[in-house]
Design a protein around this nucleic acid. Structure first.
Lengths: 137, 137
DNA sequence: CTTGACCCTGTAGCTGCTACAGGCTGCATA
DNA sequence: TATGCAGCCTGTAGCAGCTACAGGGTCAAG
């Protein structure tokens, strides 16, 4: 399978596949006589692992560790659990932050009744006059 | 006020302030005889506006538009409302995505009972064997 | 024999900062 | 007066994680 087909079946971008190879996340595949990359099932499945991990928000370095564990089934999986658990709590924290943010945005927008920018509550709220007494306390 | 003090009172980083000036978000301040930047109240308040907008997750380009409106109080504030409303829906979408992600992470982690990586459900779930029948459907 | 789709390498760009290197200025202290 | 140190200056490079070229080779169909 050439790179274009691998891209199609995994949903990854061709440039991204080459990028992953460059940073050592994917192994260098064999090359055809014309110097084209040639992939097999192992490559496909490894790339799927990477894409899925990335979709879940793991960083490249976390993916590297998870791949490493996946390559060494005799090791203890506690490390995988730690990585995933830490990531989960980061996701939860991010959700909480975004919820605070959403509420403040909604509050600001709710006050806009149209008209001139000079009287606009959205603009005003972004300045430091009408802003949110004690929010950082 | 010199750049260090402006940084202190606004909570922004010195490098960031110079960066904002470079990209035209903040106007070039006067310089002292020694070529030091010299800021006044207008600069402070503009920087506070920028920081607050950035804290709310607006992009630099969105901040530029909002600043522009703030500089022209005679314009219609509908644009500010549109920018903020669009941003709000992006935030809401991001929250929804992260919640899906959190649930899947929690599900994956919940299945790990320790032991060897070869038997680890976390590792397994990241591959494409046990993964997600029809999730992308 | 040409067209067009595909592949190659290498490099630069994106966002929003942050971190130097290498050099001035200004003020306090010995 | 010398010296040290904090603070300022410019310019450039780095971060994550791709993405987008430019400029070229390869291959099958018509």
């Amino acid at each position: 399978m050439k790179i274009g087909e691998l891209a199609r079946v995994t949903g990854a971008n061709i440039e991204t596949i080459r990028y992953y190879e460059r940073i050592g996340l994917l192994p260098e595949p064999h090359r055809t006589a014309a110097n084209y990359r040639s992939y097999g099932e192992a490559h496909r499945s490894r790339l799927a692992f990477v894409r899925h991990s990335r979709d879940l928000g793991f960083t490249i370095e976390e993916v590297r560790s998870l791949l490493d564990l996946s390559d060494h089934p005799e090791r203890d999986c506690g490390e995988a659990d730690r990585i995933a658990t830490r990531h989960l709590s980061q996701v939860e924290e991010k959700i909480a932050q975004l919820q605070v943010l959403r509420d403040e945005l909604a509050r600001i927008i709710g006050r806009c009744r149209g008209g001139l920018a000079g009287d606009c509550r959205v603009i005003e709220a972004l300045g430091d006059h009408g802003y949110c007494e004690g929010r950082h306390a």
